[in-house]
Nucleic acid binder design. Structure first.
Lengths: 207, 207
DNA sequence: ACCTGAACACCGTTCAAGT
DNA sequence: ACCTGAACACCGTTCAAGT
């Protein structure tokens, strides 16, 4: 599983091959099927390893205490960061619902932190679900193969500006606004929107 | 492209094959490559067709007027609905950044509606981006192959309840809260969080 | 008991050969 | 000029045959 994870990180999902993995392990493909039922199960294990990786960054103290917003924000940013560190694994996250041990531990830990900040168990679970969906959904789009990196922003802006202003007046006019903001900042902005929304839903925090 | 879209809807991404498409069109695979450079380009066209489909539902009047929240909510729900109608196409949406004509037209239309409600051009673009990322990201996870449908909720709840309460106390305790809420409602809840956040960010609406 | 070369049934894509 | 059967170089997976 470790070697498979490294290989996916290196060469990407499309180029990852059972034959390549066998070669790296100095064995044959047939032997792989002694340890794993197939490629699909292997990918489930790779995803859970990524989510476990996330957990390791937990040596920092869980924030000043009691401030749920800082706690939630920090957890979301850390989650987003660890997903971003393995962009090639991300497509796998939407091909399966992560319920491996690492995914469970991550949620358990985060929900517990929210409860400590005064959320009800139910409210913390709801807030976590909303945040997790957002973080995963955004990361997947941000790091999709062919997504515009910072280097492509200029090209995308030029593409927008070259459009027919009759048909797409607002896109042409706002070409800069649509491309100048790095996706990283857009993630933070959307995250703050959600945190604001959770903040307003005060009933989630009633014990 | 139409036949390819239908085929993907029918059999899913994995089972969709250039050979299958050729057969359905009563021709050979080699002929397909006269009209399209390869499978990748074909999938881009299929995605744009899905986004175009969304646009057709526009015969309903654009809401009572001036109420940006209802307008944005309606647009997001409609977008989500049309994505949900083609679950098998969704994985393609994260393998590419949709900038085809239909994607552009959809954004243009929605941003224009927000501007009419009093948003600045810049604010409308930012709000649209945040909402579009959320809708796409959620839909992709909701309809991922292997995602738990309403029928699987009970099984997932049982799985959570059967976990070791020592390691995952909150997950075991909140098993019902985590599975009883249909993903459809969870989508709406998260959407309202974001709308609340946009609402609070009043500067987006300053002309 | 464990491992593997070789095969099987596919896939996307290409191209010489037909009409 | 357009179409296609057959091939090429792959892929995930399996299994008889070796050690």
């Amino acid at each position: 599983v470790i070697t498979a994870s490294e290989l996916v990180d290196e060469v990407g999902m499309d180029a990852f091959t059972m034959r390549l993995l066998a070669e790296r392990l100095h064995t044959s493909t047939a032997t792989l099927y002694r340890h794993v039922s197939g490629k699909e199960e292997l990918m489930v294990l790779v995803v859970d390893r990524l989510l476990g990786d996330q957990e390791l960054a937990d040596d920092t103290p869980p924030s000043p205490k009691k401030d749920w917003r800082a706690t939630a924000r920090e957890a979301a940013l850390r989650f987003h960061g660890s997903l971003s560190r393995h962009p090639h694994v991300l497509p796998l996250l939407v091909a399966q619902v992560p319920i491996g041990p690492s995914a469970l531990a991550l949620r358990e830990r985060t929900v517990a932190a929210l409860v400590e900040c005064g959320f009800s168990a139910r409210g913390a679970a709801r807030a976590y679900t909303a945040l997790a969906h957002y973080v995963i959904g955004f990361a997947v789009q941000q790091h999709a193969p062919g997504a515009p990196g910072p280097a492509d922003a200029a090209a995308l802006g030029a593409y927008y500006r070259a459009l027919d202003p009759e048909r797409y007046p607002l896109t042409v006019a706002a070409a800069d606004d649509l491309t100048a903001v790095p996706l990283e900042d857009e993630f933070r902005e959307g995250l703050d929107f959600i945190l604001d929304g959770i903040d307003r839903a005060a009933e989630l925090r009633a014990a």
